[in-house]
Design a protein around this nucleic acid. Structure first.
Lengths: 168, 168
DNA sequence: AAATACTTTCAAAATATTTTGAAAGTTCAA
DNA sequence: TTGAACTTTCAAAATATTTTGAAAGTATTT
């Protein structure tokens, strides 16, 4: 397998996986492309490499930037914008965990809070069982949220710790 | 908020969230419906409650059964099949983690193994950096896989432990 | 100020996914 | 074996998502 074949394979695999992670195939492919590119790429480069339109590249790159896993880089003397992916896979993982927590878990927790304001006869066994299910869901969601929070915090501290070591 | 309103709210919220978890809205809604139903439901009940077609109910219930979070129950004397959701949200969470591990993480790891069989000049800096990125992805994926494995195993042991306690 | 080099937007087109419902399949009782 | 009660399948329709590309927008140079 040559380098280019290997890259193609990885981009394909990443793209396929994307869909099960709630990310569109193209967005995942753009991410993979930047991840394995040794240099920052322009919109044109990405269009060419993945055979997709300008608008498509623009939207997906913007989303990846929103996720905090791709950066815009400006090269002195160049008008064009270049894009590069965060290469530290741990940081990528943490960033994704952080965003998913914010986008998925937190809205769920808010919805559950809402639903648990139900005002009904607590002696009704149906009400009681519903209240219990919601309570369990809340506990579960909060527990997951806290666990993620702890892991993310720990990772961030670890990151800053190694960062500050540079100045010691 | 009445019981029925609260149920509707929860079913809606669960459905909305489903999409970001790579599960179709309807499948998530069927799950939520069964989760908050105090009794097992028939295909007709689900059709009625969610206003969806027979075929749709059939497919989604089958998928939920595949995920291991909904069970078919047969009532003596009844020809119809009834469905009920696993009510223990921890078990549901573990089951989902287990399935996602199998369906998403494991294929990724296999793809990465494939890609790392690249045979190319290791002195080429581009090849070297690619190999490194793949190596890091592998480490990350394996680490996540092992962590999940450990958590799932721990939960299962815990479950069986409490189960056996019943007989002490 | 005008031309140039780029980026962004967004309505329409293409594509992918989900849903329907009727027909085919299955099971069971008589 | 037939018919009634139910479940499953799947091609076509409906719906949702993604992609395109040209026009509008923005920034920089001349």
């Amino acid at each position: 397998m040559t380098l280019d074949e290997a890259k193609q394979h990885l981009i394909q695999a990443w793209g396929t996986l994307g869909s099960s992670w709630g990310v569109s195939r193209t967005m995942a492919q753009v991410h993979a492309l930047l991840l394995v590119s040794p240099v920052a790429m322009t919109t044109e480069d990405i269009m060419e490499a993945l055979q997709i339109s300008r608008g498509n590249v623009n939207m997906n790159v913007r989303d990846l930037i929103d996720w905090g896993i791709v950066r815009k880089v400006l090269k002195p003397g160049e008008r064009k914008e270049f894009f590069e992916a965060e290469k530290d896979v741990w940081k990528v993982g943490m960033q994704v965990a952080k965003e998913r927590k914010k986008r998925e878990l937190e809205p769920l927790i808010r919805a559950l809070e809402q639903v648990s304001t139900i005002e009904a006869d607590i002696t009704d066994p149906d009400v009681k069982q519903f209240a219990e299910t919601v309570e369990n869901l809340k506990k579960f969601a909060n527990n997951t949220n806290n666990t993620l929070e702890t892991i993310i915090k720990a990772e961030e501290n670890f990151f800053w710790a190694s960062f500050f070591k540079l100045f010691k």
